Amino acid sequence: MSDINIRRQHGKTRADARSSAEHMASELKEEFDLDYAWNGDVMRFKRPGLTGELSLDDSEVTLHIHLGFLLFALKPTIEREVHRFFDENFPT
């Protein structure tokens, strides 16, 4: 099993950061059949073989993804895609 961890400064208001995270999650839901739900400023998500959470604060967004055994081989591809979504939604 494997994990992906990303932290990035967002430079947005908390509301704008949440809006960007929501946009990113809705695209991932459509593309990868990902289910997600918010609990305050933490979004938890899952699909078969993958769980994780994205948390927001006033200055930073943090993402943790846990890949199950079957998705472990796809870690480089998944990580590249996640960075692309972060670059689009939380540019530095």
Rank of each mutant, 00 (worst) to 15 (best):
E22P: 04
A17M: 04
K46L: 09
T92V: 09
S59P: 00
Q9R: 11
E88W: 10
E22T: 14
I65K: 01
H10F: 07
S59L: 09
H66T: 12
L50P: 03
L67N: 03
A37V: 15
G49M: 01
D58R: 06
H64E: 12
L70H: 08
M43C: 13
G11M: 05
F72T: 13
V42N: 00
P48I: 12
D3A: 07
R84K: 11
P76A: 08
G52P: 02
I78V: 10
R44D: 11
L67K: 02
Y36H: 14
I78Q: 03
G11P: 03
D58W: 06
D33F: 08
S26C: 10
I78W: 02
G49E: 05
L28N: 02
H83W: 11
S55R: 14
E81N: 14
L34C: 01
T92K: 09
H23P: 01
L50S: 10
L50K: 05
D87P: 02
R44C: 10
A17E: 04
L67M: 06
Q9W: 00
D33Q: 09
L71T: 08
L67D: 00
D3L: 05
L54T: 01
N5S: 12
W38G: 06
S19M: 08
L50C: 12
I6S: 04
M1S: 15
M1C: 11
L71V: 13
F69D: 12
P91D: 10
E81H: 14
G49N: 04
A21Y: 01
D58Y: 07
V42R: 09
L28Y: 00
F90I: 06
A17F: 03
D3H: 11
Y36V: 01
F86L: 10
G40L: 08
V82K: 03
A25W: 02
V42H: 05
F72R: 12
S59K: 12
V42L: 09
L54N: 00
G52H: 01
R80M: 13
E79T: 14
E30A: 15
M43I: 15
T62S: 09
N89S: 09
P76C: 06
R7D: 10
F72N: 12
F85E: 10
